[in-house]
């Protein structure tokens, strides 16, 4: 062991202490990750493999044992990709997710902007604003069903406020059904965007804002020129997370519409569910799920790349204060 301490020419091997430290760190990392790995191996992996098996074999519940199912190659994928109903489901899901994400973000950001400077009683507002997120989506759907009847309280209030007969059929008009779910999604999940944006706004250092203030910037210019650019990574995060969640929205849509009226609210999760458990086309459902999963993986990878880039630029921006301490 004494040899390790002796200085050697060129690159000396790292001392034993460093090696054992590195090993300990690696061990620690593995031990932290192991529950996740075990869960992945025991739960997620079998499900994914089974799904993969089904998407290459024609099988459904009444077709005998699943391990004897007929191998059909890529037939099912071809079927799904040429299915116009699947195409429309994608369009509806994208529409729904985009619209509700923007809605959640706009309202969430607005509330966060109103709330980020502490004021008396802000905790009460905070709780009120968070409440929708704590409500179970199915409860949101059933409550909405009662409120949104054509001659129900919402239309009544809207009519009284506007002074005109305002009676949209929120729950039965195929032209607005998807928008109805979208509005509910916005109501349900604005708190999520609110919390993220509130955290982001509160994390911006105060001094650049005050500097802008005394240099003559109005509130609007400060927002536009200082706060918004500094918030970019947070905004991106809020949008991406909300979008991914909205793509997977199922409970409210199902509880209210089951894909109807007609196929007006038949989004991807609804269509996959119907294919699998109403038409019992288990294999087609599996193939669809795989395609959707690949789609989402592409979106997630893109999002991670974007987020990483934003984070790096943010880190670079904030390098300076620490340097100045020196």
């Amino acid at each position: 062991m004494a040899v390790a301490a002796a200085p050697a020419a060129g690159l000396p091997p790292p001392p034993a202490r460093v090696v054992s430290r590195r090993r300990a760190i690696r061990l620690f990392k593995i031990s932290l990750l192991s529950p996740l790995i075990v869960m992945f191996a025991l739960v997620l992996m079998p499900a994914l493999l089974l799904q993969l098996y089904f998407s290459f074999h024609q099988w459904t519940v009444y077709l005998g044992t699943w391990w004897d199912a007929e191998f059909v190659g890529l037939d099912l994928f071809q079927e799904v990709l040429t299915d116009p109903r699947f195409g429309w489901a994608i369009v509806r899901s994208l529409l729904f997710a985009t619209g509700s994400t923007i809605g959640c973000f706009v309202f969430g950001f607005l509330l966060a902007y109103l709330m980020y400077e502490p004021f008396r009683g802000n905790a009460v507002y905070y709780i009120i604003f968070i409440l929708p997120m704590l409500t179970v989506p199915v409860v949101v759907a059933y409550t909405a069903e009662m409120m949104l009847y054509q001659s129900g309280p919402i239309n009544d209030i809207l009519s009284r406020l506007s002074g005109t007969e305002f009676k949209p059929a929120w729950l039965s008009d195929p032209n607005i059904a998807l928008a109805t779910v979208g509005l509910l999604e916005i109501w349900n999940w604005t708190p999520f965007s609110f919390i993220i944006m509130l955290a982001g706004l509160s994390a911006i250092p105060k001094e650049p804002i005050e500097a802008a203030e005394i240099l003559g910037a109005s509130k609007w210019r400060i927002f536009w020129e200082v706060q918004l650019p500094l918030l970019r990574p947070v905004i991106l995060l809020a949008l991406v997370l909300r979008f991914l969640e909205a793509m997977a929205e199922f409970p409210k849509t199902w509880a209210l519409f089951q894909g109807g009226p007609g196929s007006a609210t038949e989004t991807l999760p609804i269509y996959i569910f119907m294919t699998t458990w109403q038409y019992f086309q288990i294999s087609k459902g599996a193939a669809m799920s795989y395609i959707v999963m690949l789609m989402m993986i592409v979106i997630v990878l893109l999002a991670i790349r974007l987020l990483r880039r934003e984070k790096q630029s943010l880190d670079k921006m904030y390098e300076q204060p620490s340097k100045a301490e020196g």
Partner: peptide
């Protein structure tokens, strides 16, 4: 008035010229 802060309080996303120019633009 004009103020200089302990933490410099530069706008981290603007370059030096844009930082200096800010007040004039406003």
């Amino acid at each position: 008035l004009g103020m200089v802060f302990q933490s410099h309080a530069l706008f981290p996303h603007k370059n030096v010229a844009q930082n200096i120019e800010f007040g004039l633009r406003m």
